[in-house]
Amino acid sequence: MALEQTQFSQNDAGSSADANQYLTFSLGDEEYGVDILKVQEIKGYVPTTRIPNAPPEVVGVLNLRGTIVPIVDLRRKFGLEEIEYNQFTAIVVVVVQNRVMGVIVDSVSEVVNIPLSDIQPAPDFGNSMSSSTLRGMARMGENLIILLDIDIVLLGEPAPLALAA
């Protein structure tokens, strides 16, 4: 139920009555999508400044035109195997609850329109990726896209950023 409600409220601000636009990116073998309205910009990977005693997925902070932006490595966040950053590695800058944050992904793919009717509720993945971080799954031709609720991914869990002192 809660899932449906968030989708409806997104719709009001979204592009059309029964579809939302998502930015998709790849991480390992999977294809993920985030609501395009959350995305501020995309930039190539640049080295960050490490923050002492930060959770492991927070790799550091970056200067984004004068603003200090924390950067989260989504592979570490999801407990995936780490890889070397390469020329495809991208930082997706998102705005969640008024905070500007960057997310490191393997590569950015495209912007897609996904009709609401194509989105299916996500199955329970167990611990590493609790189902509340997922909006659902959508099939695009051959691919299955995992739609993330980026707010919950970045702020929603008790351990990381949300519980700022």
């Binding site: 923050i51 002492p52 005693n53 930060a54 927070v58 902070v61 603003t67 200090i68 932006v69 924390p70 905070r99 500007v100 944050m101 950023l161 700022a164 002192a165």
Partner: peptide, 9 residues
């Protein structure tokens, strides 16, 4: 740092 992140010890 706190605007987008949080206070760091």
């Amino acid at each position: 740092l706190e605007t987008n992140y949080r206070k760091v010890r």
